[in-house]
């Protein structure tokens, strides 16, 4: 992130391999970046000149109230939606020049709520991650199978490969979706409110898993405390514009929360170097 405050590593999460590879303070060349992107949907301006440069190997949190443009920004970053103006680049080349399949081999997406009517097993779902790597009319290669097995291992699902999708809990399903995303062997992972509908243990489990991955993650979140715990930097959107960006510590202030969410909050730090903790006191207008 091109912000003044670089985060200090707090005790909230164990240092993942991402930090060791990405470095703590050196500003590396971003691999996936949005440059002043705008997009209208059905005549309504959803994103208005948003720039985003996640540092490689880090976790970037997208925050903001409903309708602030988080999901649309993620869709632009994954190339599913094209920006009306501005450009999303991957390794400096516009996404449009890459081709869909090439992008899907680099950028994986986990949606907030994935479901299917098809009777799939965990293994079937994870294998979907190989779709962008495979050619028509040819069987899976050893590399495909290896990527699938590695993804299962990485997410602790090796023993559940044959379990039917429909018997999984919400948290397990999201874990399987992350395994599917990892089978794509991405270097960038985009997650759209992945912890919605999950109980607190699964929320923490899931974000722990994401934070430990040695890849660049951009995750839209509603829960400011989760963002403070797991994100290396946050970007706060309101009505399609970036209103604040930087390390959670310096960004998630009481005045910003009041301004963006219309909520009175008390932001405390249990100790020096700890992640901020946010307690909500009520809305700004009423009590």
């Amino acid at each position: 992130m091109t912000t003044g405050t670089e985060r200090r590593d707090g005790g909230a999460r164990p240092p993942g391999p991402g930090q060791t590879t990405a470095g703590q303070t050196t500003a590396e060349q971003p691999t996936l970046a949005a440059d002043r992107v705008s997009r209208t949907i059905d005549g309504r301006l959803i994103l208005d000149g948003v720039s985003l440069t996640p540092r490689p190997g880090s976790v970037t949190g997208l925050l903001g109230p409903n309708g602030s443009g988080k999901s649309t920004l993620l869709r632009l970053l994954s190339g599913v939606l094209a920006p009306a103006s501005g450009v999303v680049t991957l390794d400096g080349r516009p996404l449009g020049d890459w081709g869909r399949r090439a992008v899907a081999r680099r950028v994986a997406v986990v949606e907030q709520h994935a479901d299917t009517l098809v009777e799939l097993t965990v293994l079937d779902v994870v294998r979907l991650g190989r779709v962008p790597h495979r050619r028509a009319w040819t069987p899976a290669t050893a590399a495909d199978e290896e990527a699938v097995l590695t993804a299962l291992e990485r997410t602790g699902l090796t023993d559940r490969a044959d379990q039917p999708w429909h018997t999984l809990s919400g948290g397990e399903r999201q874990r399987v979706q992350i395994a599917r995303a990892l089978a794509q062997e991405p270097r960038e992972l985009l997650l759209d409110e992945p912890t919605n509908h999950l109980d607190i243990q699964h929320q923490l489990d899931l974000l722990n898993l994401v934070a430990e991955l040695p890849i660049t993650s951009v995750v839209a979140l509603h829960d400011l405390n989760l963002a403070a715990m797991y994100c290396d930097q946050v970007v706060v959107l309101r009505q399609g514009r970036v209103v604040a960006a930087g390390a959670p510590d310096g960004t998630l202030t009481e005045s910003l929360i009041a301004d963006v969410y219309g909520v009175r909050a008390a932001v405390t730090r249990p100790g020096p170097g700890d992640r901020p903790h946010i307690r909500f006191l009520g809305t700004v207008t009423g009590d």
């Binding site: 779902v125 779709v131 962008p132 495979r134």
Partner: peptide
């Protein structure tokens, strides 16, 4: 259809999920 076999698999979680797997 056999050429699109993998693509059809990718539609299991809907067209947005298919699109993010590189399907046109």
């Amino acid at each position: 259809c056999l050429g699109y076999a993998r693509t059809l698999d990718a539609f299991a979680f809907g067209q947005d999920a298919a699109a993010s797997l590189g399907v046109a």
